[in-house]
Design a protein around this nucleic acid. Structure first.
Lengths: 337, 337
DNA sequence: ATGAAAGCGCTAACAA
DNA sequence: TTGTTAGCGCTTTCAT
């Protein structure tokens, strides 16, 4: 790899001049020199050493994409289609800005924090961050960052977040069920925090509004403490007769449940209606195709990147919170009762 | 961020000494000094500036993960569950080695090449690379690299590759079909290159061995030149009556075809048997669950990283080619005829 | 056991 | 229009 200095020597000019033509500051360079330099660059395939540049400029051109994982939940995080799509969307937007993505996937937030400092990343996009980690992050890293799908009470600290209307979405789809005559509805999720909690609230909003009573039993907790999924599915199966509809906190579970139930002789939506949340590929692939609420993950990633760069450039980035709209998409997993 | 120099000044010692204790070269440092330095590091949360380190060492600690995409095929590459899983596997192995992943997703190989040079990456894992790009890569980048699932005739140049037994896998599953009495079998794919071509050869091996004649018509080309998938699916539907089984080059298509056909009143496997290749999540999610050939993507990524580091450390990395084994997994999409 | 100093490749303020 | 030079933070060789 040829360097600026070498080129300067070869042409018997200064590094500044070379640097200037490299950066298109050609206002102050004679066209003869420009030409000479350009030729050399071409001939020797000059590419700048980014480390040196970053060191000198005290920037990095790197955007960190950090995902906090859950060791007992994922063996391979990006396998999750959600994470994959988000990664892809973020990558392409960041690349379009001439920056690079460094991927941090870890269940140890301080590992992420150290890497970020070490690499002097210019900005950070965070996904899957819970309260304590958010606090730590906020305290230890002084770079622009935007959270995705984060639900930390904003009383604790200010942060910019891009998420979706989790609560409203779940409210809408539950209302949809109710409008089809359903009155005995259960909510199924694997936790009761963050977005899933919001969705749960939306569920309750809808049934409360419809005058349907809610009992703790109607929250079916999936996979508490890593118990075997098929055991839980068996339990779900047992409870089919108590309800006319299930609202699942995610398509992932909805699809698993549909398949399990079908395999065990229950007809959907005849015996029970099922709806999901996310509108991912799976929801289109199951049969009956899943009625669910749609969210646009690529848009989410795009907006997160947009905001991050506004922060980096110290422009106005608008509200701290942005909640992207969602909507119900009707397919075939709900019947009128 | 505190620097080595600052710490040295505060303690009134030299940067060399500080650097030495940072790197555990404590053989030549008095334990009093060690203690002092350690405390400072602790207190001020010292983290090394990686740019500076890399510049000095002429290394980067970065492994590039480059994926060549196909503009008209993908809007978002990582959305593809295969790419996502591979990314996740590679990331975690690379992290375990104390290196970082920089993601390059682009349809322009020279963009990738320049970035690689600029960042002075220590090694490269390449996915989705075709012949011309492989040649360019080989010529322009002088760093260790390993290809994943690459099929360039090795006569052109030497490269290390980790892939799977595409041909054998497709041979096995076709044989499986034949063993179930099938004689009229079509092969469906969206191209006839690289791995898909190998799979096709495996298909032909099996039918030839069984004395079944092959006609060009039996290769059903999906999505040639980006034509609309549903049109093609309609065509596939029309041809159901000519065959008793379809072997699809990937689960992706197999699942789409199953759903399309089911939606149009054909029963699977009663009216036609269908098999896929890859054993991804989709194959477990469709009904009937797909009989397919299993490959282990995480293992593939892990081995690619292993080999890459052997090359980086100039150790023996064994064969240039490694072909990971695959096997048929029987589910419910095939019936005996 | 400790330190001085050169250098990695590039940038940018300043001088000429 | 072009050149000089002092860093950026760290590593490393060679003295002491």
């Amino acid at each position: 790899m040829i360097t600026i200095k070498e080129m300067a020597q070869m042409l018997d000019i200064s590094t500044t001049t070379v640097s200037n033509v490299i950066h298109g500051k050609t206002g102050e360079v004679s066209s003869a020199t420009i030409e000479k330099v350009r030729r050399l660059i071409e001939e020797y395939d000059y590419v700048p050493n980014i480390n040196a540049r970053n060191l000198a400029r005290n920037e990095s051109g790197i955007i960190g994409l950090a995902m906090k994982t859950n060791r007992d939940k994922y063996e391979n995080f990006i396998k999750d289609p959600f994470a994959g799509e988000l990664t892809g969307a973020v990558e392409s937007c960041v690349r379009a800005k001439g920056y690079f993505i460094m991927l941090y996937i870890s269940d140890d937030i301080s590992e992420i924090i150290n890497s970020v400092a070490s690499w002097n990343v210019d900005g950070l996009i965070l996904f899957g961050i819970a309260k304590e980690d958010g606090i730590l992050l906020k305290k230890r890293v002084k770079k622009p960052m935007v959270f995705v799908d984060c639900y930390i009470e904003d009383s604790i600290f200010e942060y910019v977040n891009v998420g979706i209307e989790d609560r409203k979405g779940c409210y809408e789809i539950t209302k949809h069920l109710i409008s089809k005559g359903h009155k005995k509805i259960a909510y199924l999720a694997d936790n009761c925090e963050g977005g899933d909690y919001e969705r749960f609230k939306g569920f309750k909003d809808a049934i409360t509004e419809a005058g349907i009573s809610y009992d703790e039993e109607d929250f079916i907790m999936l996979r508490p403490n890593g118990a075997d999924l098929s055991l839980l599915l068996a339990d779900v199966h047992r409870r089919v007769k108590s309800y006319t509809a299930f609202v699942c906190a995610s398509d992932y579970y909805a699809v698993h449940i549909i398949n399990y139930l079908k395999d065990h002789g229950v007809s959907i939506p005849e015996d029970i209606s099922i709806v999901g949340f996310d509108d991912n590929e799976y929801s289109r692939m199951v049969r009956p195709a899943l009625t669910t609420v749609h969210q646009d993950i690529s848009q989410k990633g795009g907006i997160a990147v947009e905001k991050l760069f506004q922060m980096i450039h110290e422009e106005d980035y608008g509200e701290n919170y942005t909640r992207l709209p969602v909507y119900v998409v009707e397919r075939d997993s709900v019947k009128e009762v």
